[in-house]
Nucleic acid binder design. Structure first.
Lengths: 139, 139
DNA sequence: CCTTTAAATGGAAATAGTTTCCATTTATTC
DNA sequence: GAATAAATGGAAACTATTTCCATTTAAAGG
């Protein structure tokens, strides 16, 4: 994840042990995590760590393109790893409702500045839920 | 909004004064509201009314297709009126960042059951932000 | 109408996710 | 190794949302 380290440095952020650990945690799992889950996982690896710091770090990492935050209507927030940070063409994500695995969905037709229903488009949220190939078989 | 009344009745829900008032409030404004805003507006019209009831009603009305809940990353939730409830072909919405006006965006290419990146699609969130024609002129 | 009944309501309190504050520690630069 | 801005952790504050429960009410059937 040296690419991630670059993104952090380029954003003027420090490369701290907790940030490295957070990146490793997301690297090693295909699924999204809540801030609380990240805290628990970090604590297992490097001892005590505060939830406020986790929140700050998840936002910081999302801000510099290492993570992204999932859209949804639940009360908890989820973050996942950008697996091709920086080099990505514009794309969105699909999450498996069974195992949580996140995959890319390419070919978004929307982009900033285009006209849409008489509006000038500024931003958009596109997010999918489905069942991944693996979970389709095992059910 | 007789259509809305039908949707409420068809869902086995009661047509209460508060629900009628909530529908009117959304009817008279082109923009989304938070639960708190709805409470304030209802109180101005028919006196005291509790926030828990507003939450229950907004969810109930969204559940039967009268309202829908907007996606987003803010800490507050927003609801808006389905302006063609029931008869709508599948579509999404764009919200003006300046005045809040909501419009339809038709032509979604995604539907339940289709394959997408190896996943079988179950649901999706598509939500747009932009500047409406009116606000483009007046700036 | 009048009765019955399940649903809706409002207020208070509980929950829970998130943010703020601040004193201390630490990564980075020179 | 020293200087400095950023990061950290704990406690507390915030705030949106939900739960609980006693009371009221819409709707259905006599």
């Amino acid at each position: 994840m040296y690419k991630a380290y670059q993104l952090i440095r380029n954003a003027g952020l420090k490369l701290t042990p907790i940030r490295k650990e957070i990146i490793l945690i997301f690297e090693e799992s295909p699924r999204p995590f809540t801030p609380r889950e990240v805290q628990n996982l970090v604590q297992k690896r490097i001892g005590r760590c505060g939830l406020p710091g986790i929140y700050r770090n998840l936002e910081a990492l999302a801000g510099c393109g290492v993570l992204f935050r999932l859209a949804g209507f639940g009360r908890e927030r989820f973050y996942a790893l950008c697996r091709e940070p920086g080099t990505d063409p514009h794309h969105h994500h699909i999450v498996c409702v069974s195992c949580g695995k996140v995959a890319h969905v390419d070919g978004c037709r929307y982009h900033e500045g285009m006209m849409l229903g008489g509006y000038r488009l500024l931003s958009h949220i596109v997010q999918f839920e489905g069942v991944c190939a693996n979970c389709q078989e095992n059910n």
